[in-house]
């Protein structure tokens, strides 16, 4: 209660600031200038946002010509902080790739787009895509199986290039 009558900022005001009007004119000029600036929003369905490689959208599995990259090691499932990924491994008949995911599900209701799965993946098999339009009308639809997760490698070039140019660890010699 001591300083209730000492509004120092009000006391420091000059005469012109005290009579408000020039300051009001300044404020109006500021908003007028603002109105002529380019707009920060866009007409969404017609004008879409095209993210670049650094964008972390819906996580997807990389599909090469020879098939999926994933070897079902389960590291993504292990690291996922939101417990969104479920992997079930099965054996293959070929020798160069012994395991493949029989079942690979990402629950998009749980996913927090942290990108840990991508970071931990030794095969660069799960990457974050540019897809940000995820619309589901029921909970079952939001659990994506392999058929929805596998995306051809050609569509993921931006992200793969970004990941290679931003690696924080030495790629293992044996990979």
């Amino acid at each position: 209660m001591a300083n209730i009558n000492t509004n120092t900022r009000a006391q420091k005001m000059t005469f012109w600031e005290r009579i408000y009007l020039p300051e009001i004119a300044k404020g109006l000029a500021a908003t007028f200038k603002q109105a002529l600036q380019p707009k920060m929003t866009r007409s969404y369905p017609e004008e879409r946002f095209e993210p670049n490689g650094s964008y972390r959208g819906r996580p997807v599995l990389v599909l090469e010509e020879s098939g999926e990259r994933c070897v079902a090691c389960g590291l993504c499932s292990r690291v996922c902080p939101a417990l969104a990924i479920e992997v079930q491994a099965a054996e293959t008949l070929t020798r160069d790739k012994e395991r493949y995911p029989e079942k690979f599900e990402i629950n998009m209701l749980r996913c927090i787009f942290c990108g840990f799965c991508e970071e931990v993946c030794p095969e660069e098999a799960i990457v974050m895509s540019k897809d940000y339009e995820m619309i589901y009308t029921n909970r079952e639809d939001a659990i994506l199986g392999k058929e929805k997760l596998l995306v051809p490698m050609a569509q993921l070039q931006d992200r793969l290039e970004y990941l290679r140019s931003h690696q924080y660890y030495e790629p293992s010699a044996t990979a």
């Binding site: 603002q34 109105a35 007409s43």
Partner: peptide, 13 residues
Amino acid sequence: RLAAFIQMRLGPN
């Protein structure tokens, strides 16, 4: 619309 322009938005369109 004017409110939107002043706030650098497009407003109802």
